[in-house]
């Protein structure tokens, strides 16, 4: 008995609050709109749409762990899949049967291109932040503009439409009755969870975020660690880009712009401290579910996208107030 209460006590109160919030939103939506909300289709569509946003939120959380932020994630995601798309269009005839039926090695090469783009873009951020000592906010605002700008220059504005069938499977397919994007999300977030909680790298990140000076004096190579955290962030953003372009069969320089606020919101709501030191993958998962339930419930009630934006923004402010209140109690 005491073992159970001790275990319970060890669970973050923040996670319990999140769980409560999720249940409340679910119950509220179900009560207001039972016949339209309580359908398997609703939850099935969430499993396809939520993963890309979830990956961006995890990326944001990783940057926030050291007290930074990455405002270039959307630019990285779009650049990654535009480059992959242009590769596919170059090797297969545009929009012809060759493109749709590109073989697995070619698609794998495209994934490689997208991932490499994300890692390199993250490395650029990391170098600016650790070597040139530019603040993360401004460094990533600048690189975000450059990445989006490169997308514009490459495409001239319109979307790159048409991806191979196998690529589409990543965004739209199912395996064992489960959405492939969800599987990708679960695998990636499990890896990040392991990296952050069970390796020296993750512990060092949290230490640097709590007190960078103390971490330096403790002998940690803070520069290197922070650098790799931005490389990780870039990689996660490019995976989100792969899912997005796989789902929509297109890539464009201004896709997913509203995801930036939502990624920040989910990260903050999940209990990540934007000043650094605290953040958890499990929290991101819960906050993601809560907000996906909220937004699909609102869409069911025929709220316009603008009103949903208003509610997202309000929710971010509310979660700030909640966090402030929680810290005061402590």
């Amino acid at each position: 008995m005491t073992a159970i209460t001790q275990r319970l006590r060890r669970i973050d109160t923040n996670l319990l609050q999140l769980l409560l919030l999720t249940v409340l939103i679910f119950a509220g939506m179900a009560a207001m709109n039972p016949e339209r909300f309580l359908r398997p289709y609703v939850f099935e569509s969430i499993t396809f749409i939520a993963p890309e946003l979830g990956l961006l939120a995890i990326a944001m959380m990783v940057a926030m762990l050291t007290g930074g932020i990455d405002l270039s994630v959307i630019g990285i995601a779009n650049l990654s899949c535009i480059l992959a798309g242009m590769f596919f269009h170059a090797v297969g005839a545009p929009r012809g049967p060759d493109l749709v039926n590109l073989p697995l090695p070619m698609v794998a090469a495209g994934i490689g291109i997208a991932l490499a783009t994300g890692l390199i873009a993250g490395a650029v951020n990391g170098l600016l932040i650790t070597r040139l000592r530019v603040t993360p906010i401004l460094a990533t605002i600048g690189t975000g503009q450059v990445f989006t700008g490169i997308c514009l220059v490459l495409t001239g504005g319109p979307a790159v439409v048409g991806f191979p069938k196998l690529w589409g499977q990543i965004g739209n397919g199912t395996a064992f009755g489960i959405a492939v994007p969800l599987i990708v999300f679960l695998v990636v977030s499990a890896l990040v969870w392991f990296l952050l909680t069970r390796t020296a790298f993750g512990i060092n990140l949290a230490l640097i975020g709590t007190n960078a000076k103390a971490a330096t004096f403790a002998g940690l190579r803070t520069g290197r660690t922070v650098f790799f955290s931005y490389v990780l962030t870039g990689g996660l953003a490019s995976i989100a880009g792969i899912l997005l372009s796989g789902r929509t069969n297109a890539a464009k320089s201004d896709y997913g712009v509203s995801y930036l606020l939502q990624a920040v919101l989910i990260s903050v709501l999940a209990g990540t401290n934007p000043a650094g030191g605290r953040g958890s993958v499990v929290g991101i998962g819960l906050a993601l579910v809560a907000l996906m339930l909220l937004s699909s419930g609102l869409q069911m009630m025929r709220f316009s996208n603008f009103l949903v934006d208003l509610i997202w923004g309000g929710f971010l402010l509310l979660s700030i107030a909640l966090a402030a209140w929680r810290n005061r109690v402590r």
Binding site: I69, I137, L261, V264, L265, V268, P274, A275, F306, L307, V308, D309, L310, I311, W312, G313, G314, L316, L317, I320
Partner: peptide, 15 residues
């Protein structure tokens, strides 16, 4: 942090 506050108020006001 002002960035996160203003991100929230900006989106809410435009919405």
């Amino acid at each position: 942090i002002p960035l996160i506050v203003t991100l929230g108020t900006g989106t809410a006001v435009r919405g």
